[in-house]
């Protein structure tokens, strides 16, 4: 059972991984989006902001967002650590990603580029 602290750490790790991947930074340089992460069970909220190719982590919900990712704290932590492909819980219906199809596709693409072998 993951805690909010672990989820927070996974999100910071995710942001660091994105920022440390030069290719991804270039790919995302024009993808400026605000992503709201919501843990359904603990009601914790976090924000990832992608701006100019850099991803910034912050605590709390954003006033508005382009994408909203929600699941249990455990699933979110696993997804953002790259331990589980988001495909799996998404297809099972235990991970929700609300936003435009293009943005959902892009977020999924980022995770594939970061973690798939």
């Amino acid at each position: 059972m993951s805690t909010n602290e672990e989820l927070s750490h996974s999100l910071r790790t995710f942001a660091d991984d994105c920022n440390g991947n030069e290719k991804l930074r270039v790919m995302n340089r024009d993808w400026n989006r605000i992503i709201h992460i919501h843990a359904d069970d603990t009601q914790a909220d976090y924000t990832l902001t992608s701006n100019d190719g850099t991803v910034v982590y912050s605590e709390g919900a954003p006033p508005t967002c382009d994408l909203r990712v929600s699941a249990t704290c455990e699933i979110l932590t696993q997804v953002f650590y790259g331990e589980v492909s988001p495909n799996e819980p998404y297809n099972e219906g235990t991970l929700r990603v609300d936003g435009s199809e293009d943005d959902v596709l892009r977020l999924d693409f980022i995770t594939a580029m970061l973690w798939e072998e």
Binding site: S85, N87, N91, D108, F109, A112, M113, E116, E117
Partner: peptide, 11 residues
Amino acid sequence: ARKYRSRLLTV
């Protein structure tokens, strides 16, 4: 192609 292969099955 290799990294995106699992997505090709479902997207």
